[in-house]
Design a protein around this nucleic acid. Structure first.
Lengths: 341, 341
DNA sequence: CTGTTAGCGCCTTCAT
DNA sequence: ATGAAGGCGCTAACAG
């Protein structure tokens, strides 16, 4: 009795299935069945076992369970950022969709770095997730290969302008930009300015820009001034770039890469005493809450980030195995006229 | 040769350690060591093995690895919401702190429902995380017991006014409310209004309110009008409740439960032509970016959510095993005078 | 520097 | 309705 594996006094006593089974005087399989609500069990047995479970404070070990069943209920999620509110909104949709299901989300943030994204995807795949939700179509070759070969369901969220690995859920940013252009031309604007942020990390902003350019070009117009912030796409940058834009050329409307920057534009105009939309019209993208609550509602394009997350989950829950055909789900967008353009 | 486990044509071939070992003609342990960068290995062997790894597209199975080593590198995180920007900010801090470490975060959202939180915690604990980061001190009894008995590190984030299970990282909301009160009294305000949201789900807002009341009471003052929104604590609610507040009593300063609502107050004043701060002073809480970029910077108390996340991770990485003593880490707060009060 | 031997805690047949 | 046996893919000593 000198070297027996004694149960230590109180802490770190890891209670296993076996302990529960011994205490309840049944076999491990019985306990296992009861914990999983699977198969038939006599009510008396169930109660006896559950009593032990409670008494011992047993928490099933899913690591062991997953290894044995070769199945996890994990979902990998990769977003580029959390500082841009649109991604938390997508996560909310994911969360809502997951509510009540047996799945758990493992969330990672790539900081818009593709190499880091690759590392994250590798790390997630190592947990044998049932599916992986990732942002956009821009990935390293290795990431794309891993995702494809993993055989699990892959959702590429936010955009639908390219062919997905498996499923794409989002909207056409090119068409959104185009729609914005048409809308503004119809409203009589002629001298366009563009305020944006770094395109290398945000290809979707670029696509919107391209769509906008196309619409203008069809109307015989073009963008006469550009003010591009280096990194940030936030309100402060919007203020600064708006000031810059106005120093570059006479414009009657400024189109922003997103609502945050557009709100910055509005704040700049307030400070500088510029009448919106008479002296300068302002048009954003996203349809954030703040834009709606502004004294003068921001003209913008509304996308539905929550829906993107929710639809992504729905798609996966409906068909947990990857089929042969690719799917694209368009969550659409909508022009919100507002009062700033 | 009739019933051999043949490798299927292309998809779903799960490559295991064993496959790599066979192909490289070494033992499984050698491959294992190489994959984990552990122990000494001859360079030639390493190359041979890595070649196989690449050729087969081997991805280690962490489920099996964790079961064998009885260690995971998972961190459970539970936040009440993602729609309130402060929580994504905490997650950013967590994310930053995790960068470069071997840990992965499993994030769950409780929607401010304590019973759901309990379910989430149970689910997370089943994955045998190394630590769990949860929001605040309000939990069900069962949650508290599970966390305590799990023996893993537990960080309760955001507030420090109570005794933690293990570690608390955050600030004193009561002291912040008190500081706000003192500050405003010193600046000469006498008729206080309060605009807030549902306290039952946000005890920290309540604590700030209590601190504020205390400071006022010490100065022989009290809050003369309250406007409390049912659910939302967002900009729109702030607008509506500000209008309501002004219909209730004459106040010269309105203290808001957070910056979002305070921004709503400012927008209301803009629309209604109320001069801020001369006719109505406005004071928020959080120190959000938008408050700083407003034409007239919002007077508020700055907390540091990013730091809370970051410090939480630091604490865990420094001491992954739970010690006997409890720790409290104060991330502080700071009055930002601004221009609206 | 590399291989061998036992599990990790649970689930899945297959019996009973 | 319940039990027994084997194994999931990997790591951890311990040998060599």
């Amino acid at each position: 009795m000198t070297k027996t594996k004694l149960r230590l006094p109180d802490r770190k006593v890891k209670v296993t299935l076996r302990d529960v089974a011994l205490r309840a005087d049944v076999s491990e399989s019985t306990v296992s069945r009861i914990m999983r609500n699977e198969g038939l069990v006599a009510e008396a047995t169930r109660e006896k076992v559950m009593e032990s479970v409670r008494a011992l404070g047993y928490v099933p070990n899913r690591i062991a369970g997953s290894l044995a069943s070769l199945e996890t209920h994990l979902l990998g999620v990769v977003v580029p950022s959390l500082s841009n509110i649109v991604f938390p909104e997508v996560l909310q949709g994911i969360n809502a969709g997951l509510r009540g299901s047996r799945y758990q989300a493992v969330i990672s943030v790539s900081d818009y770095e593709m190499d880091h994204e690759e590392t994250l995807v590798r790390g997630i795949l190592a947990w044998q997730p049932k599916a992986i939700l990732i942002t956009g179509f821009d990935h390293t070759l290795a990431t794309r290969r891993m995702l494809d070969q993993s055989g699990v369901r892959v959702v590429e969220m936010m955009e639908i302008d390219s062919a997905p690995i498996d499923i794409a859920v989002g909207m056409s940013h090119r068409r959104a930009g185009y729609a914005a252009g048409r809308h503004l031309v119809e409203r009589g604007y002629r001298r366009f300015g563009y305020v944006g942020h770094d395109w290398t990390s945000d290809r979707r902003a670029r696509q919107r820009y391209d769509g906008l350019s196309e619409a203008l070009s069809e109307a015989g117009l073009s963008i006469v001034a550009h003010a591009i912030a280096d990194g940030s796409s936030a309100i402060g940058a919007g203020k600064r770039q708006t000031a810059l834009l106005r120093s570059m050329a006479e414009v009657d409307v400024a189109v922003y890469s997103n609502d945050d920057m557009a709100v910055g534009g509005i704040f700049h105009c307030m400070e500088a005493g510029i009448a919106v939309p008479d002296q300068l019209a302002i048009f954003g993208f996203n349809g954030l809450e703040i834009g709606r609550d502004l004294p003068r509602p921001l003209s913008t394009i509304r996308s539905n980030r929550f829906l993107i997350g929710q639809k992504s989950i729905e798609a996966i829950l409906q068909a947990p195995e990857r089929p042969a055909t690719k799917t694209t789900i368009d969550t659409g967008f909508e022009i919100f006229a507002g009062a700033t353009a």
